[in-house]
């Protein structure tokens, strides 16, 4: 009877080593395998997190190595939470988050619904639609600045074509009322395909037999959509919202390239503000507290959301 690969490997193990391993429990062997990963996780994630929390209670500034570091208690947290500028950036971030997610889910789901239908050139259209998310956000930010240019920008000309307005009469990234929408549009253009792909996976996971059964019961297409498609694709939709929510909460590169946070502070999102505090003003203690607040916010919201997501999945 031929030996299995495991038996072959066991036979080749030196006797001394085999005896030593034989003495180890399964639990110990499991720890030996897991230990390097845990060590890496501790070094790269947990230690910096604990260090950041510690720094957040000090007035440490990384650009003043000669200055004494004082323990300031909750002072950094109080300053941040009572600073109207910080709340303005929170508002700008909330506006960006809500609108990008709403538009991306709406358009992404509609595209997925269309692409899910069998038609000629289906694959080609999928590839074309997915193209924007393959680009670097910095590149996208850069070329949207050109698209938004009042004198040469395609966007202004398209708007002008439909409205009859002079293309040079409005500036998407220079106007306080339009700039928040300029970043929403650019991000939606870039990331709707991602939402579409997740929704497509959801739609394709629904067995045809369910629709066939619904057809037998003479359910209309409209009823099938609301009672079958939406509930069954809902976990996927919620997953897309979670991914985009987390990503857009820390949005930085695209917006910096597009508006630099302006005009004024109109498009200064929390990540941009945090970067300014940490690496331009070099207020390390203060920015650590800021980072902790953002971390707790995202972590808390995401935890609540994941619980809701699991409940939806269980239904």
């Amino acid at each position: 009877m031929p030996l299995s690969p495991m038996d072959t490997a066991a036979a080749k193990t030196p006797v001394g080593m085999a005896k030593r391993i034989r003495g180890l429990s399964d639990r110990t062997i499991a720890w030996i395998f897991v230990a390097p990963t845990i060590f890496l996780l501790l070094a790269v994630n947990i230690f910096p997190l604990i260090w950041t929390i510690r720094l957040s209670f000090t007035n440490f500034r990384v650009n003043r190595p000669n200055k004494d570091v004082d323990w300031v208690g909750l002072s950094n947290y109080k300053r941040i939470l009572s600073d109207p500028d910080v709340w303005n950036t929170m508002q700008a971030t909330a506006h960006f988050l809500i609108w990008t997610i709403a538009l991306q889910v709406l358009i992404g789901f509609a595209l997925a619904f269309l692409i899910n239908k069998k038609f000629r050139g289906n694959d080609m259209w999928t590839t074309i639609i997915v193209f924007p998310m393959m680009l670097s956000p910095a590149v996208v930010g850069n070329f949207w600045t050109f698209l938004y240019q009042p004198q040469i920008g395609l966007f202004n000309y398209v708007v002008a074509f439909f409205t009859g307005a002079d293309p040079a009469s409005f500036s998407m990234i220079g106007d306080v009322h339009l700039a928040p929408w300029a970043i929403v549009i650019a991000d939606t253009w870039m990331w709707t395909p991602f939402v579409m792909l997740i929704c497509l996976a959801g739609l394709r996971s629904i067995p045809d037999s369910i629709y066939e059964a619904a057809e037998c019961d003479r359910a209309s297409k409209w009823r099938q959509f609301w009672t079958l498609t939406i509930p069954m694709a809902l976990p996927f939709l919620m997953l897309a919202v979670l991914f985009r929510g987390i990503e857009n909460f820390k949005m930085f590169d695209l917006v910096v390239q597009l508006t630099g946070g302006g005009p004024g502070n109109t498009t200064t999102l929390t990540s941009i503000d945090l970067k300014r505090e940490a690496f331009e003003k070099w207020r390390t203690g203060y920015s650590s507290a800021y980072a902790v607040i953002l971390f707790v916010t995202v972590f808390g919201l995401a935890s609540i959301y994941v619980k809701a997501l699991n409940k939806v999945k269980e239904r």
Binding site: Q149, Q151, G153, S171, I173, G174, G260, G262
Partner: peptide, 13 residues
């Protein structure tokens, strides 16, 4: 005033 009346549209950054 110079920015408002004498600069190209879109020159906000």
């Amino acid at each position: 005033e110079l920015y408002d009346i004498g600069t190209p549209p879109g020159s906000s950054n």
